[in-house]
């Protein structure tokens, strides 16, 4: 798949000895609104291997976005550390690309300018790269348009193209498809897997949709609310490449029931404890 002499950035193909592992140690984030501290995530210990696809599921307010923001470097943990390939995270960086819940293409730049932005900031040559990515994402011909001229699904594709153009080791996705209609969402899930299978970047994918989490991931982490902890890990050993047909298999349904069981249990506990 890759040629030893090629670097990842000029070919867009990752070398086999890839980077992108994430280690979290004792990761805790306490917010302090009005002096009444709220523990968003509590002593999370988690290792994610390079090239692994991990989904994080949990009820809203369980701290999954906080966890992602910590990995992205947008917020600083109160205690604990995050390491990416052994280097401590101390802020955002181009090695960790983010796909936001609400589309965050820059509205004042055309789709092409958005896609070229990352490489351009590093003064890399970008000839034809945007066009290649647009056609890979199935939105060729939209390069000269402004983001608001595209539909939500197309904007999401363009945002993923922008991330790929920057060639990060890690993709952090915060409920990226939750605002899309059901059909578009399914198409995007398959497209995401296709892309991921090509170059195996590490993916941390946040969702509240259990089916989506299982379909996409190697590993589904179920989070508890208040304070956010990882309650359960479910390994998804469904063969790859996957398409949406696997969501009707008995194996898939078993995993789904297992996951839902944990989530329901968690919700019940939360209700009983008055949250």
């Amino acid at each position: 798949m890759s040629n030893d002499n090629q670097t990842a950035s000029d070919a867009g193909v990752r070398p086999d000895n890839q980077d992108g592992s994430i280690q979290m140690q004792n990761l805790t984030k306490i917010y302090d609104p009005d002096g009444e501290s709220v523990t968003a995530i509590d002593e999370i210990e988690l290792n994610i291997e390079a090239g692994e696809f991990v989904s994080l599921v949990g009820p809203s307010g369980c701290g999954k976005s906080t966890l992602l923001d910590c990995i992205a470097g947008f917020i600083e943990p109160t205690y604990g550390h995050i390491y990416v390939d052994g280097t401590r995270v101390d802020g955002p960086g181009a090695d960790r690309g983010v796909v936001f819940q609400e589309n965050r293409l820059l509205p004042w730049k055309t789709v092409r300018e958005n896609i070229n932005l990352g490489p351009k900031m590093r003064s890399e040559t970008i000839d034809g790269r945007a066009e290649e990515l647009l056609s890979k994402m199935g939105i060729e011909g939209t390069g000269d348009q402004y983001p608001t001229e595209l539909s939500g699904g197309m904007q999401q594709r363009a945002e993923i193209a922008r991330l790929l153009a920057n060639d990060p080791e890690i993709m952090l996705m915060d409920e990226p498809f939750s605002a899309l209609d059901a059909l578009t969402k399914e198409i995007m899930q398959e497209l995401l897997l296709e892309i991921w299978e090509e170059d195996n970047r590490t993916v941390v994918f946040i969702t509240h949709d259990v089916e989506e989490a299982i379909f996409l991931a190697d590993r589904v982490l179920i989070m508890t609310a208040g304070p956010g902890r990882i309650k359960e890990t479910i390994d998804v050993d469904i063969e790859r490449p996957r398409d949406l047909d696997v969501t009707t298999t008995p194996q898939f349904n078993e995993l789904k029931e297992e996951a839902l069981g944990h989530i329901v249990e968690e919700a019940r506990e939360a209700m009983e404890s008055g949250q």
Binding site: P92, G93, R96, G97, L106, L117, M121, R122, R162, N166
Partner: peptide
């Protein structure tokens, strides 16, 4: 703030934030 985050995650520093956001 998400625009700022987006550009920082693409590797932008202080000057790039000014220029692009």
């Amino acid at each position: 703030p998400e625009y700022v985050r987006a550009v920082k995650s693409l590797g932008g520093g202080r000057w790039e934030l000014y220029r692009h956001v």
